[in-house]
């Protein structure tokens, strides 16, 4: 479904140039979920944005990307925009503050000239567990979890095959996180969606994905199955460190942490 070969992303030019993603290759089967974990600033979001074609004018991107049999050009095609959608990390920043939920949800349908926009909007809201009373509210009138549901609904309107999830729950509290994760799992089952999930929460990745890659300093250092992750069965010291860290705060263990990469 998704095939990325030797992706490189460089921000800026000349002396200021910053190589944010180095030689990243990954492949995701249709209907599978793929996790990207790694430390902050390791380039996870940048990989997603490069795939989504959101970096033109900001960074120079090189490498081969194929999605659903379509080899991606600089300019993404309209059908790509319909098939690939994204949910952003920050539910407060990803909805336009002056648009109602209705406007937010009908815009993609209108852009792609879909029919029955009204029904689609109502159906998408229902799909994410929001009743029709949310339709004409503004983002500031709904909670963070509800906003993230609206983001998910917006991504679903065009009936995509692939959804890119950039830390979809890290701004949400645990009770809402459980609701959103359940929602994502249900949609995946019912629509056969393919996910690429970026998260720094190993438990979330283990809950949603089958395979994951660990990123560090812009490069992928290890790719493993979630089963291996659960069994703490990793060869890379960096991954083992991530696993230790996900057990909670332990002042002693932290001193043993190594600096990787730099």
């Amino acid at each position: 479904m998704i095939d990325i070969q030797n992706l490189n992303v460089v921000f800026g030019h000349g002396k200021q140039a910053f190589h944010a993603v180095r030689q990243v290759s990954l492949a995701v089967e249709a209907g599978q979920s793929f996790g990207l974990v790694g430390e902050s600033g390791s380039g996870k979001t940048t990989v997603l944005r490069a795939l989504a074609g959101l970096l033109d004018g900001v960074a120079s991107v090189s490498g081969d990307m194929t999605v659903d049999g379509e080899s991606l050009q600089q300019q993404r095609s309209k059908s790509f925009r319909q098939r690939v959608q994204m949910v952003f990390q920050d539910p407060y920043g990803s909805l336009h503050p002056r648009h109602t939920v209705d406007t937010i949800l009908s815009e993609p349908a209108r852009v792609h000239r879909l029919d029955r926009i009204e029904q689609r909007v109502v159906a998408a809201l229902e799909e994410v567990g929001l009743d029709a009373s949310f339709r004409f509210r503004y983002p500031h009138q709904i909670s963070g979890g509800q906003r993230q549901r609206v983001s998910v609904a917006r991504a679903l309107i065009t009936d995509p095959r692939i959804v890119l999830l950039d830390e979809p729950t890290s701004a949400l509290d645990v009770s809402v996180q459980a609701e959103v994760l359940n929602l994502l799992m249900r949609l995946k089952r019912e629509h056969g969606l393919t996910y690429v999930l970026v998260s720094h929460n190993l438990a979330v990745v283990a809950h949603v994905c089958e395979t994951l890659s660990v990123m560090q300093n812009g490069a992928i250092v290890e790719t493993m199955s979630v089963q291996q992750l659960r069994e703490h069965n990793s060869t890379m010291p960096y991954t083992r460190q991530l696993l230790t860290a996900s057990l909670g705060y332990d002042r002693g263990a932290i001193d043993a942490f190594e600096e990787f990469g730099s």
């Binding site: 925009r81 990390q89 920043g93 852009v111």
Partner: peptide, 17 residues
């Protein structure tokens, strides 16, 4: 630089839009 503009681009909204 805000996410909702990225989201709109992701949706396929034209620059004029």
């Amino acid at each position: 630089n805000s996410d909702f503009i990225l989201a709109a681009r992701m949706q396929g909204v034209s620059t004029a839009g």
